[in-house]
Design a protein around this nucleic acid. Structure first.
Lengths: 225, 225
DNA sequence: CTTGACAACTTACACTGTAAGGTTCATTTT
DNA sequence: AAAATGAACCTTACAGTGTAAGTTGTCAAG
Protein backbone atom coordinates (compact mmCIF):
# COMPACT_ATOMS: atom_id res chain seq x y z
CA UNK A 1 0.00 0.00 0.00
CA UNK A 2 1.13 3.46 -0.76
CA UNK A 3 -0.41 4.67 2.48
CA UNK A 4 2.66 3.36 4.24
CA UNK A 5 4.86 5.38 1.91
CA UNK A 6 2.78 8.44 2.60
CA UNK A 7 3.04 7.88 6.34
CA UNK A 8 6.76 7.35 6.11
CA UNK A 9 7.05 10.69 4.39
CA UNK A 10 5.09 12.50 7.02
CA UNK A 11 6.49 11.42 10.35
CA UNK A 12 8.43 14.10 12.15
CA UNK A 13 8.12 16.48 9.25
CA UNK A 14 6.05 19.27 10.79
CA UNK A 15 7.34 22.13 12.91
CA UNK A 16 5.86 25.29 14.34
CA UNK A 17 7.80 27.40 11.91
CA UNK A 18 6.67 25.39 8.90
CA UNK A 19 3.07 25.57 10.01
CA UNK A 20 3.29 29.33 10.53
CA UNK A 21 4.83 29.84 7.11
CA UNK A 22 2.10 27.79 5.48
CA UNK A 23 -0.56 29.60 7.49
CA UNK A 24 0.57 32.97 6.18
CA UNK A 25 0.45 31.61 2.66
CA UNK A 26 -2.98 30.06 2.99
CA UNK A 27 -4.39 33.20 4.59
CA UNK A 28 -3.09 35.42 1.81
CA UNK A 29 -4.27 33.00 -0.86
CA UNK A 30 -7.66 32.06 0.52
CA UNK A 31 -8.38 35.19 2.50
CA UNK A 32 -8.83 35.39 6.24
CA UNK A 33 -12.35 33.95 6.14
CA UNK A 34 -11.27 31.19 3.78
CA UNK A 35 -8.57 30.00 6.14
CA UNK A 36 -9.19 26.78 8.01
CA UNK A 37 -7.22 24.07 9.74
CA UNK A 38 -8.12 21.61 7.01
CA UNK A 39 -6.95 23.90 4.23
CA UNK A 40 -3.79 24.60 6.16
CA UNK A 41 -3.25 20.87 6.58
CA UNK A 42 -3.79 20.35 2.86
CA UNK A 43 -1.15 22.97 2.11
CA UNK A 44 1.22 21.19 4.46
CA UNK A 45 0.43 17.77 3.08
CA UNK A 46 -0.80 16.45 6.40
CA UNK A 47 -4.05 15.95 8.28
CA UNK A 48 -5.75 18.77 10.18
CA UNK A 49 -5.29 17.15 13.54
CA UNK A 50 -1.55 16.87 13.12
CA UNK A 51 -1.33 20.62 13.51
CA UNK A 52 -2.84 20.33 16.95
CA UNK A 53 0.24 18.57 18.12
CA UNK A 54 2.15 21.81 17.60
CA UNK A 55 -0.59 24.35 18.34
CA UNK A 56 -3.32 23.45 20.82
CA UNK A 57 -5.90 25.55 18.95
CA UNK A 58 -6.36 27.97 16.07
CA UNK A 59 -6.22 30.77 18.61
CA UNK A 60 -2.74 29.68 19.63
CA UNK A 61 -1.70 29.51 16.01
CA UNK A 62 -3.04 32.98 15.34
CA UNK A 63 -1.21 34.33 18.33
CA UNK A 64 2.02 32.80 17.06
CA UNK A 65 1.47 34.55 13.74
CA UNK A 66 0.91 37.92 15.39
CA UNK A 67 3.91 37.35 17.62
CA UNK A 68 6.10 36.62 14.63
CA UNK A 69 5.08 39.80 12.87
CA UNK A 70 5.36 42.01 15.93
CA UNK A 71 8.48 40.22 17.14
CA UNK A 72 10.25 41.17 13.92
CA UNK A 73 9.75 44.86 14.64
CA UNK A 74 12.75 46.76 15.91
CA UNK A 75 12.79 50.04 17.72
CA UNK A 76 14.21 52.86 15.61
CA UNK A 77 17.75 54.03 16.34
CA UNK A 78 17.67 56.16 19.48
CA UNK A 79 20.27 58.46 17.97
CA UNK A 80 17.85 59.77 15.34
CA UNK A 81 15.70 62.87 15.83
CA UNK A 82 12.53 62.10 17.75
CA UNK A 83 10.12 62.89 14.96
CA UNK A 84 12.00 60.59 12.64
CA UNK A 85 12.08 57.80 15.19
CA UNK A 86 8.33 58.06 15.67
CA UNK A 87 7.73 58.09 11.96
CA UNK A 88 9.89 55.02 11.40
CA UNK A 89 8.19 53.06 14.18
CA UNK A 90 4.78 53.88 12.76
CA UNK A 91 5.76 53.06 9.19
CA UNK A 92 7.28 49.77 10.32
CA UNK A 93 4.00 48.76 11.85
CA UNK A 94 2.08 49.92 8.83
CA UNK A 95 4.32 47.83 6.62
CA UNK A 96 3.14 44.67 8.37
CA UNK A 97 -0.28 45.28 6.90
CA UNK A 98 1.21 45.93 3.52
CA UNK A 99 3.10 42.61 3.63
CA UNK A 100 0.10 40.64 4.89
CA UNK A 101 -2.97 42.38 3.54
CA UNK A 102 -5.39 39.52 4.10
CA UNK A 103 -4.19 39.13 7.67
CA UNK A 104 -4.55 42.83 8.41
CA UNK A 105 -8.13 42.71 9.68
CA UNK A 106 -7.24 40.03 12.17
CA UNK A 107 -4.07 41.81 13.12
CA UNK A 108 -5.85 45.07 13.81
CA UNK A 109 -8.67 43.55 15.84
CA UNK A 110 -6.27 41.46 17.88
CA UNK A 111 -5.70 42.56 21.45
CA UNK A 112 -1.97 42.43 21.93
CA UNK A 113 -1.33 40.94 25.34
CA UNK A 114 1.26 38.30 24.59
CA UNK A 115 4.74 38.91 26.05
CA UNK A 116 6.21 39.68 22.63
CA UNK A 117 3.49 42.22 21.86
CA UNK A 118 3.80 43.78 25.29
CA UNK A 119 7.53 44.17 24.76
CA UNK A 120 6.87 46.09 21.56
CA UNK A 121 4.21 48.16 23.24
CA UNK A 122 6.60 48.92 26.09
CA UNK A 123 9.20 50.13 23.63
CA UNK A 124 6.75 52.37 21.81
CA UNK A 125 5.63 53.93 25.06
CA UNK A 126 9.29 54.61 25.81
CA UNK A 127 9.50 56.38 22.49
CA UNK A 128 6.62 58.65 23.46
CA UNK A 129 8.28 59.32 26.79
CA UNK A 130 11.45 60.27 24.91
CA UNK A 131 9.38 62.91 23.15
CA UNK A 132 9.11 64.72 26.43
CA UNK A 133 5.62 63.63 27.44
CA UNK A 134 4.67 62.45 30.89
CA UNK A 135 3.07 59.08 31.57
CA UNK A 136 -0.47 60.27 30.98
CA UNK A 137 0.18 62.17 27.79
CA UNK A 138 2.40 59.39 26.47
CA UNK A 139 -0.41 56.92 27.03
CA UNK A 140 -3.06 59.12 25.43
CA UNK A 141 -0.91 60.11 22.47
CA UNK A 142 0.01 56.49 21.91
CA UNK A 143 -3.67 55.70 21.80
CA UNK A 144 -4.51 58.60 19.51
CA UNK A 145 -1.72 57.82 17.08
CA UNK A 146 -2.55 54.15 17.39
CA UNK A 147 -6.16 54.82 16.47
CA UNK A 148 -5.02 56.58 13.35
CA UNK A 149 -2.56 53.85 12.47
CA UNK A 150 -5.02 51.02 13.05
CA UNK A 151 -7.69 52.70 10.98
CA UNK A 152 -5.21 53.27 8.19
CA UNK A 153 -3.99 49.67 8.17
CA UNK A 154 -7.57 48.54 8.13
CA UNK A 155 -8.57 50.75 5.22
CA UNK A 156 -5.43 50.20 3.21
CA UNK A 157 -5.77 46.44 3.36
CA UNK A 158 -9.46 45.71 3.72
CA UNK A 159 -11.19 48.98 2.86
CA UNK A 160 -12.80 50.85 0.05
CA UNK A 161 -10.05 50.13 -2.47
CA UNK A 162 -10.68 46.36 -2.14
CA UNK A 163 -14.17 46.76 -3.55
CA UNK A 164 -17.52 46.77 -1.80
CA UNK A 165 -18.43 44.32 0.92
CA UNK A 166 -21.99 45.54 0.48
CA UNK A 167 -24.50 43.23 -1.18
CA UNK A 168 -26.51 46.04 -2.75
CA UNK A 169 -23.94 47.98 -4.67
CA UNK A 170 -24.42 51.13 -6.67
CA UNK A 171 -23.62 51.60 -10.35
CA UNK A 172 -21.18 54.25 -11.51
CA UNK A 173 -24.01 56.15 -13.18
CA UNK A 174 -26.04 56.24 -9.98
CA UNK A 175 -22.93 57.19 -8.05
CA UNK A 176 -22.29 60.15 -10.35
CA UNK A 177 -25.91 61.21 -10.21
CA UNK A 178 -26.81 60.76 -6.56
CA UNK A 179 -23.48 60.93 -4.75
CA UNK A 180 -21.31 63.39 -6.64
CA UNK A 181 -19.00 64.07 -3.71
CA UNK A 182 -18.22 60.38 -3.35
CA UNK A 183 -17.66 60.14 -7.09
CA UNK A 184 -15.24 63.06 -7.01
CA UNK A 185 -13.43 61.84 -3.91
CA UNK A 186 -13.17 58.26 -5.16
CA UNK A 187 -10.15 59.19 -7.22
CA UNK A 188 -8.22 59.75 -3.97
CA UNK A 189 -9.38 56.59 -2.27
CA UNK A 190 -7.40 54.17 -4.41
CA UNK A 191 -4.27 52.23 -3.59
CA UNK A 192 -2.04 54.69 -5.43
CA UNK A 193 -3.08 57.45 -3.02
CA UNK A 194 -2.52 55.57 0.22
CA UNK A 195 0.95 56.91 0.93
CA UNK A 196 0.17 60.54 0.34
CA UNK A 197 -3.01 60.43 2.39
CA UNK A 198 -1.31 58.57 5.21
CA UNK A 199 1.55 61.06 5.26
CA UNK A 200 -0.88 63.95 5.49
CA UNK A 201 -2.62 62.59 8.56
CA UNK A 202 0.62 61.47 10.14
CA UNK A 203 2.20 64.88 9.65
CA UNK A 204 -0.84 66.46 11.21
CA UNK A 205 -0.46 64.32 14.31
CA UNK A 206 3.31 64.75 14.48
CA UNK A 207 2.98 68.52 14.14
CA UNK A 208 0.46 68.60 16.93
CA UNK A 209 2.63 66.48 19.17
CA UNK A 210 5.51 68.86 18.70
CA UNK A 211 3.24 71.78 19.45
CA UNK A 212 1.94 70.00 22.52
CA UNK A 213 5.45 69.50 23.77
CA UNK A 214 6.13 73.19 23.21
CA UNK A 215 3.08 74.18 25.21
CA UNK A 216 0.79 75.12 22.33
CA UNK A 217 -1.55 72.27 23.03
CA UNK A 218 -4.44 70.72 21.19
CA UNK A 219 -7.68 72.58 21.49
CA UNK A 220 -5.86 75.77 22.44
CA UNK A 221 -6.50 77.29 19.07
CA UNK A 222 -8.63 80.40 19.03
CA UNK A 223 -12.18 79.61 18.02
CA UNK A 224 -12.10 76.14 19.49
CA UNK A 225 -15.46 74.50 19.94
CA UNK B 1 -51.68 18.35 17.64
CA UNK B 2 -50.17 21.46 19.06
CA UNK B 3 -47.99 21.84 15.98
CA UNK B 4 -50.95 23.43 14.28
CA UNK B 5 -51.25 25.91 17.15
CA UNK B 6 -47.58 26.69 16.91
CA UNK B 7 -47.84 27.18 13.18
CA UNK B 8 -50.90 29.35 13.59
CA UNK B 9 -48.90 31.53 15.94
CA UNK B 10 -46.08 31.82 13.42
CA UNK B 11 -47.75 32.79 10.17
CA UNK B 12 -47.08 36.31 9.07
CA UNK B 13 -45.29 37.08 12.29
CA UNK B 14 -41.81 37.74 10.98
CA UNK B 15 -40.71 40.94 9.36
CA UNK B 16 -37.41 42.44 8.32
CA UNK B 17 -37.60 44.91 11.18
CA UNK B 18 -38.29 42.23 13.77
CA UNK B 19 -35.43 40.12 12.48
CA UNK B 20 -33.06 43.07 12.56
CA UNK B 21 -34.08 43.94 16.12
CA UNK B 22 -33.52 40.38 17.24
CA UNK B 23 -30.21 40.23 15.38
CA UNK B 24 -28.90 43.25 17.27
CA UNK B 25 -29.93 41.63 20.53
CA UNK B 26 -28.38 38.26 19.75
CA UNK B 27 -25.14 39.86 18.58
CA UNK B 28 -24.80 41.91 21.75
CA UNK B 29 -25.70 38.95 23.94
CA UNK B 30 -23.71 36.22 22.21
CA UNK B 31 -20.97 38.34 20.71
CA UNK B 32 -20.28 38.77 17.03
CA UNK B 33 -18.62 35.36 16.70
CA UNK B 34 -21.42 33.71 18.66
CA UNK B 35 -24.06 34.99 16.31
CA UNK B 36 -25.65 32.51 13.93
CA UNK B 37 -28.82 32.11 11.92
CA UNK B 38 -29.93 29.30 14.18
CA UNK B 39 -29.46 31.33 17.33
CA UNK B 40 -31.23 34.24 15.72
CA UNK B 41 -34.09 31.93 14.77
CA UNK B 42 -34.27 30.62 18.31
CA UNK B 43 -34.53 34.17 19.61
CA UNK B 44 -37.33 34.84 17.15
CA UNK B 45 -39.13 31.59 17.94
CA UNK B 46 -38.89 30.32 14.40
CA UNK B 47 -36.72 28.09 12.27
CA UNK B 48 -33.45 29.27 10.77
CA UNK B 49 -34.69 28.92 7.22
CA UNK B 50 -37.66 31.15 7.81
CA UNK B 51 -35.28 34.08 8.01
CA UNK B 52 -34.14 33.39 4.49
CA UNK B 53 -37.53 34.36 3.23
CA UNK B 54 -36.84 37.92 4.38
CA UNK B 55 -33.06 38.05 3.85
CA UNK B 56 -31.48 35.95 1.12
CA UNK B 57 -28.28 35.48 3.14
CA UNK B 58 -26.49 36.51 6.32
CA UNK B 59 -24.58 39.03 4.24
CA UNK B 60 -27.83 40.71 3.28
CA UNK B 61 -28.94 40.74 6.88
CA UNK B 62 -25.67 42.27 8.01
CA UNK B 63 -25.95 44.92 5.38
CA UNK B 64 -29.43 45.77 6.58
CA UNK B 65 -28.07 46.17 10.10
CA UNK B 66 -25.32 48.52 8.98
CA UNK B 67 -27.80 50.45 6.86
CA UNK B 68 -30.08 50.90 9.82
CA UNK B 69 -27.33 52.28 12.00
CA UNK B 70 -25.90 54.56 9.35
CA UNK B 71 -29.33 55.51 8.07
CA UNK B 72 -30.21 56.88 11.49
CA UNK B 73 -27.35 59.36 11.33
CA UNK B 74 -28.27 62.94 10.55
CA UNK B 75 -26.00 65.66 9.28
CA UNK B 76 -25.32 68.34 11.88
CA UNK B 77 -27.16 71.67 11.55
CA UNK B 78 -25.48 73.65 8.77
CA UNK B 79 -25.98 76.81 10.79
CA UNK B 80 -23.48 75.79 13.43
CA UNK B 81 -19.79 76.69 13.30
CA UNK B 82 -17.82 74.33 11.09
CA UNK B 83 -15.65 72.87 13.81
CA UNK B 84 -18.73 72.07 15.86
CA UNK B 85 -20.49 70.47 12.90
CA UNK B 86 -17.49 68.26 12.26
CA UNK B 87 -17.25 67.30 15.90
CA UNK B 88 -20.92 66.39 16.10
CA UNK B 89 -20.79 64.26 12.95
CA UNK B 90 -17.78 62.39 14.28
CA UNK B 91 -19.27 61.88 17.73
CA UNK B 92 -22.53 60.64 16.20
CA UNK B 93 -20.66 57.96 14.33
CA UNK B 94 -18.64 57.08 17.38
CA UNK B 95 -21.84 56.69 19.37
CA UNK B 96 -22.93 53.85 17.09
CA UNK B 97 -20.06 51.81 18.41
CA UNK B 98 -20.95 52.75 21.93
CA UNK B 99 -24.54 51.57 21.42
CA UNK B 100 -23.54 48.34 19.71
CA UNK B 101 -20.16 47.36 21.12
CA UNK B 102 -20.22 43.76 19.99
CA UNK B 103 -21.18 44.83 16.49
CA UNK B 104 -18.41 47.42 16.30
CA UNK B 105 -15.73 45.16 14.84
CA UNK B 106 -18.03 44.16 12.01
CA UNK B 107 -19.16 47.71 11.53
CA UNK B 108 -15.64 49.03 11.24
CA UNK B 109 -14.41 46.35 8.86
CA UNK B 110 -17.46 46.72 6.65
CA UNK B 111 -16.95 48.48 3.33
CA UNK B 112 -19.81 50.90 3.07
CA UNK B 113 -21.06 50.78 -0.48
CA UNK B 114 -24.77 50.46 -0.02
CA UNK B 115 -26.87 53.44 -1.15
CA UNK B 116 -27.65 54.45 2.42
CA UNK B 117 -24.01 54.39 3.42
CA UNK B 118 -22.99 56.27 0.30
CA UNK B 119 -25.55 58.95 1.09
CA UNK B 120 -23.99 59.41 4.50
CA UNK B 121 -20.51 59.44 3.01
CA UNK B 122 -21.63 62.01 0.47
CA UNK B 123 -22.93 64.25 3.23
CA UNK B 124 -19.72 63.99 5.22
CA UNK B 125 -17.66 64.89 2.19
CA UNK B 126 -19.89 67.94 1.79
CA UNK B 127 -19.09 68.86 5.34
CA UNK B 128 -15.38 68.77 4.55
CA UNK B 129 -15.97 70.88 1.48
CA UNK B 130 -17.82 73.37 3.68
CA UNK B 131 -14.63 73.65 5.70
CA UNK B 132 -13.04 75.33 2.73
CA UNK B 133 -11.08 72.37 1.35
CA UNK B 134 -10.96 71.40 -2.29
CA UNK B 135 -11.94 67.97 -3.56
CA UNK B 136 -8.55 66.41 -3.00
CA UNK B 137 -7.96 67.74 0.47
CA UNK B 138 -11.55 66.96 1.47
CA UNK B 139 -11.05 63.39 0.36
CA UNK B 140 -7.72 62.99 2.12
CA UNK B 141 -8.84 64.67 5.32
CA UNK B 142 -11.97 62.55 5.37
CA UNK B 143 -9.75 59.50 5.15
CA UNK B 144 -7.33 60.72 7.79
CA UNK B 145 -10.08 61.63 10.24
CA UNK B 146 -11.87 58.43 9.31
CA UNK B 147 -8.79 56.38 10.11
CA UNK B 148 -8.67 57.95 13.54
CA UNK B 149 -12.36 57.45 14.12
CA UNK B 150 -12.37 53.84 12.96
CA UNK B 151 -9.38 52.98 15.10
CA UNK B 152 -11.02 54.61 18.10
CA UNK B 153 -14.32 52.78 17.62
CA UNK B 154 -12.39 49.56 17.29
CA UNK B 155 -10.36 50.07 20.44
CA UNK B 156 -13.19 51.43 22.52
CA UNK B 157 -15.42 48.48 21.78
CA UNK B 158 -13.11 45.57 21.08
CA UNK B 159 -9.73 46.67 22.34
CA UNK B 160 -7.44 46.53 25.31
CA UNK B 161 -10.12 47.44 27.85
CA UNK B 162 -12.12 44.32 26.91
CA UNK B 163 -9.35 42.09 28.18
CA UNK B 164 -6.73 40.15 26.23
CA UNK B 165 -7.49 38.17 23.12
CA UNK B 166 -4.07 36.63 23.53
CA UNK B 167 -3.82 33.03 24.66
CA UNK B 168 -0.54 33.49 26.51
CA UNK B 169 -1.29 36.33 28.87
CA UNK B 170 1.04 38.00 31.29
CA UNK B 171 0.54 38.31 35.04
CA UNK B 172 0.41 41.68 36.73
CA UNK B 173 3.67 40.93 38.50
CA UNK B 174 5.44 40.16 35.25
CA UNK B 175 3.87 43.22 33.67
CA UNK B 176 5.21 45.46 36.42
CA UNK B 177 8.63 43.86 36.25
CA UNK B 178 9.20 43.49 32.51
CA UNK B 179 6.93 46.09 30.95
CA UNK B 180 6.84 49.05 33.33
CA UNK B 181 5.73 51.53 30.67
CA UNK B 182 2.73 49.40 29.80
CA UNK B 183 1.95 49.01 33.48
CA UNK B 184 2.05 52.76 34.00
CA UNK B 185 0.09 53.56 30.86
CA UNK B 186 -2.55 50.92 31.56
CA UNK B 187 -4.32 53.28 33.90
CA UNK B 188 -5.19 55.48 30.91
CA UNK B 189 -6.33 52.64 28.67
CA UNK B 190 -9.53 51.86 30.54
CA UNK B 191 -13.11 52.64 29.61
CA UNK B 192 -13.25 55.63 31.92
CA UNK B 193 -10.50 57.34 29.93
CA UNK B 194 -11.99 56.84 26.47
CA UNK B 195 -13.63 60.23 26.19
CA UNK B 196 -10.67 62.28 27.28
CA UNK B 197 -8.25 60.41 25.05
CA UNK B 198 -10.59 60.61 22.09
CA UNK B 199 -11.07 64.33 22.61
CA UNK B 200 -7.33 64.88 22.68
CA UNK B 201 -6.75 63.21 19.33
CA UNK B 202 -9.82 64.79 17.81
CA UNK B 203 -8.77 68.26 18.91
CA UNK B 204 -5.35 67.64 17.43
CA UNK B 205 -6.88 66.80 14.07
CA UNK B 206 -9.39 69.65 14.19
CA UNK B 207 -6.66 72.13 15.09
CA UNK B 208 -4.55 70.95 12.21
CA UNK B 209 -7.46 71.18 9.79
CA UNK B 210 -8.05 74.78 10.80
CA UNK B 211 -4.38 75.51 10.37
CA UNK B 212 -4.40 73.82 6.97
CA UNK B 213 -7.28 75.99 5.88
CA UNK B 214 -5.37 79.05 7.06
CA UNK B 215 -2.32 78.09 5.05
CA UNK B 216 -0.16 76.76 7.88
CA UNK B 217 -0.25 73.24 6.63
CA UNK B 218 0.77 69.89 8.03
CA UNK B 219 4.44 69.18 7.80
CA UNK B 220 5.24 72.86 7.50
CA UNK B 221 6.48 73.05 11.05
CA UNK B 222 10.14 73.87 11.45
CA UNK B 223 12.20 70.81 12.15
CA UNK B 224 9.97 68.51 10.15
CA UNK B 225 11.44 65.15 9.26
C1' DC C 1 14.62 -7.03 21.04
C1' DT C 2 11.78 -4.56 23.79
C1' DT C 3 9.88 -0.49 25.52
C1' DG C 4 8.25 4.01 25.59
C1' DA C 5 7.48 8.43 23.93
C1' DC C 6 6.26 11.20 20.49
C1' DA C 7 4.15 12.58 16.05
C1' DA C 8 0.86 11.94 12.87
C1' DC C 9 -3.57 9.84 11.58
C1' DT C 10 -8.64 8.35 12.03
C1' DT C 11 -12.92 8.90 13.63
C1' DA C 12 -16.60 11.36 15.51
C1' DC C 13 -19.35 15.32 17.30
C1' DA C 14 -21.52 19.59 17.55
C1' DC C 15 -21.70 23.50 15.11
C1' DT C 16 -22.04 26.65 10.86
C1' DG C 17 -24.61 28.69 6.28
C1' DT C 18 -27.81 27.45 3.04
C1' DA C 19 -29.81 24.66 -1.23
C1' DA C 20 -33.94 22.06 -2.28
C1' DG C 21 -38.29 20.85 -1.62
C1' DG C 22 -42.58 20.24 1.28
C1' DT C 23 -46.41 22.14 4.01
C1' DT C 24 -49.72 25.36 5.63
C1' DC C 25 -52.56 29.21 5.57
C1' DA C 26 -54.46 33.98 4.03
C1' DT C 27 -56.18 36.06 0.23
C1' DT C 28 -58.17 36.53 -4.07
C1' DT C 29 -60.89 34.89 -7.83
C1' DT C 30 -64.58 32.36 -9.65
C1' DA D 1 -68.96 28.74 -0.92
C1' DA D 2 -65.11 26.62 -3.48
C1' DA D 3 -61.00 26.68 -5.72
C1' DA D 4 -56.65 28.49 -6.81
C1' DT D 5 -52.73 31.15 -5.95
C1' DG D 6 -48.68 32.39 -3.71
C1' DA D 7 -46.44 33.99 0.36
C1' DA D 8 -44.57 32.37 4.73
C1' DC D 9 -42.69 29.01 7.18
C1' DC D 10 -40.73 24.28 8.05
C1' DT D 11 -37.99 19.88 7.21
C1' DT D 12 -34.28 17.67 5.54
C1' DA D 13 -29.76 17.39 3.89
C1' DC D 14 -24.97 18.66 2.68
C1' DA D 15 -20.50 20.44 2.82
C1' DG D 16 -17.89 22.95 5.64
C1' DT D 17 -15.92 24.37 10.40
C1' DG D 18 -12.93 23.52 15.14
C1' DT D 19 -11.51 19.99 17.95
C1' DA D 20 -11.98 15.94 21.60
C1' DA D 21 -10.70 11.17 21.86
C1' DG D 22 -8.54 7.21 20.48
C1' DT D 23 -5.23 4.73 17.26
C1' DT D 24 -1.23 3.75 14.69
C1' DG D 25 3.40 4.28 12.89
C1' DT D 26 8.37 5.52 13.84
C1' DC D 27 12.45 6.07 16.10
C1' DA D 28 15.64 6.16 20.08
C1' DA D 29 17.15 4.37 24.47
C1' DG D 30 17.71 0.58 27.51
Amino acid sequence: MDTSIKKKRMRGRLSREMIEDAAFEVIEKEGLAGFSMRKLAAALGCEAMSIYHHFPSVAHLHEALVDRLVGALEMPDAGLPWRQRMRIAIEDFRRIGRDHPAYATFFVTYRMNSPICLAWLNGILSLFRDGGFDTELSARLFRAVGYYLMGAVLDENAGYAKGPSAVNTVSDEQLARDFPNVMAAGRFFGTAEFDKTFELGLDMLLDEMERLRDGVGAGQLSGKV
